[in-house]
Design a protein around this nucleic acid. Sequence first.
DNA 1: GATGAATGAGCCTTCATTCAT
DNA 2: CATGAATGAAGGCTCATTCAT
Lengths: 212, 212, 212, 212
Amino acid sequence: MAIGKDRVRGAAVKLFADKGFHGTGIRDLAQEANLSSASLYHYMGTKEELLAGIMRESLERLIAAAREATDGVTDPVNRLGILVALHVITHAVRPDETRVVDNEVASLSPHAKAAVVALRDEYESLWAETIDKGVRDGVFRTDQPAVTRLALLEMCSGVARWYSSRGPLGLEELAEHYAQLAMRALGRLDEGEPPDLANCRAVVSKTWSVAV
Amino acid sequence: MAIGKDRVRGAAVKLFADKGFHGTGIRDLAQEANLSSASLYHYMGTKEELLAGIMRESLERLIAAAREATDGVTDPVNRLGILVALHVITHAVRPDETRVVDNEVASLSPHAKAAVVALRDEYESLWAETIDKGVRDGVFRTDQPAVTRLALLEMCSGVARWYSSRGPLGLEELAEHYAQLAMRALGRLDEGEPPDLANCRAVVSKTWSVAV
Amino acid sequence: MAIGKDRVRGAAVKLFADKGFHGTGIRDLAQEANLSSASLYHYMGTKEELLAGIMRESLERLIAAAREATDGVTDPVNRLGILVALHVITHAVRPDETRVVDNEVASLSPHAKAAVVALRDEYESLWAETIDKGVRDGVFRTDQPAVTRLALLEMCSGVARWYSSRGPLGLEELAEHYAQLAMRALGRLDEGEPPDLANCRAVVSKTWSVAV
Amino acid sequence: MAIGKDRVRGAAVKLFADKGFHGTGIRDLAQEANLSSASLYHYMGTKEELLAGIMRESLERLIAAAREATDGVTDPVNRLGILVALHVITHAVRPDETRVVDNEVASLSPHAKAAVVALRDEYESLWAETIDKGVRDGVFRTDQPAVTRLALLEMCSGVARWYSSRGPLGLEELAEHYAQLAMRALGRLDEGEPPDLANCRAVVSKTWSVAV
DNA sequence: GATGAATGAGCCTTCATTCAT
DNA sequence: CATGAATGAAGGCTCATTCAT
């Protein structure tokens, strides 16, 4: 059952990312999962529950990973570096999943949407707290912390739309470059060390089974 | 005719942005445009041609505006400032239209998609040339000009997802803040003047009938 | 008005013959007649009335022609020869019109159908009477006069499906060959003169403006 | 599946014959087949593929039957008698199917039409060869073999438009009368034996499950 | 577990027709 | 005369979902 469920999830993530939730038919899913459309319903509830489940678990995984990777790190510079690196790597190695999370919120019913938005807010608050603390500590310089946060999040999420693991850019370089961009955007022009990604690496490996 | 056509376009832009192309039915469009679903077809071809037309004209308008606003501006710093400001303002004042352009490329048939992608590439090449020139001139500092360009574009496009004209942030402040973020990302920590937006203002007003 | 009406009729005959009544849209008619679809309605009632009118007038013309061409001819052999020749020539020079009459009866509403069927029966009774008289007179030999009549009518109507005025076969040869076939089918193996087509020729020329 | 498919085919043959392809709606088919319109699509492709399939298989069956019934018969008189009898019986016992084949060629797309026309040509060539041989052998007398072939085919196909199994005329009488008509048309005035229909009978019974 | 069969609702699109201008 | 604008109804087809086997 678990295997079949994963097969369906995998198919759904791929197709929802490529063609959108409304652009993907139940028959497309069945074909992609090598199942008949009736069999699909052994592994999922409705099509919408399938989408909601994917989004919720994806966000929960991201939140847990972010908490674990920043656990014990108090310095805002390092914390934000880790958050950026983790976000970027996630979007680079799971582009389909993250695009679904980022683009299909509007396809959810109000009830399911509320849960997903709450998770997204919970995640973004990690960024907000870190940026705010950095501003208070005087290590970040920005007139509009909230706008900057949104700008950085959009910038980092955008990775899922263009990054290819078959291109010349490695995950580590990618993460470091985005960390630099974020630091610069927050008024730190290449000061100090790049963030320590050791912890981040371990969390990524554990959470998404990918070596950085 | 032109009036009816605009009414349909307006309805389509709104709904395609809110619910996606595949999430929007012809009956939704008809209702939004205060027309019967059959009458819709006096003003449009197929639903897909409607989408393609919206995307093409939107990109053509953006390209023309970008060319006009940067016309005669040779300094890469100023040029990029103008490009960023124009892009951000566009996405702030036409969030529906720009979200359709940014999110619905996958809903196009191969033929229509090719035309839209060509326009998008043409537009992005304005950014690429400017950034590359700035790097060559030594006024921009980045190891990965291409990655940085993509990061900045995604960052700026993201504005369409959250900005509200009813919020506290004015268009001018918004544009200036994003211009600052872009400059910082390119290694310029608040040096020199902010870009001159006079020209930009005029173009925006003419192109989108909006005062900045 | 009369000219416009003829233009519409002509378009309808062509398209109804080529694509069938149900396969022809009002827009097809308008295009073929170089009119807007709204203008069509100045020259016709409903689409069905247009069809019914075409069929009725076509049959009335055929009946009148048959009566006139056989007027005063009492010999069944000559009479049938004339009927066959007239039928075949009609179907050869007006293939679209005759195919509509022959194939689209089922597309009529019950009321209109009744009128058309009555005309068709009136026409066929000319054949029936002639054949029956020939049998009674002993000049035709057949066990099944009714079946033979139907067989001959179908045979002659079939001309509209394959004859081309651009082919090698002239109208006169065509008519004479079919007259021969009919005579043979009725048991007359090339006896006597071929039917005198002089009268027939005149009627055809007057009725369908065609020289034989 | 096969049962459902046959149910759909049967409904289609009946309605296409009665109201024409374009005059028959998908909902009409569903009602006639006692199925919902959606269920129809389990058993067919598009409506046009349904039509094309009916026509192709009908012609293939007819060709196979004609080949089998004339197998080993070399005498043109007998051969043509068999072809006529088979054709007439087919059109008498399957009037709907044959009318669809004869009348709906124009409703096919160019691709499907080509296949059907090829089959029809293949079938008619059986007639052509037989008639030509009879003329060469001097047993048939006609100035226009090709015209005569077309005339006879139309004559025989017409049976599907008027014959009723509930009428007084049996299949055997019908076939023999038409064979006589054909022979007469080819210049043979009731000479020799009527064609031997034993073989024909067997083929008809096997192919169309009908006793003659 | 797995699926063929089935369907009500809905899809995008075109239909024949009307009418104000 | 002529037509652009408009529409309710219907066109062919696909949707997500259920259920008996």
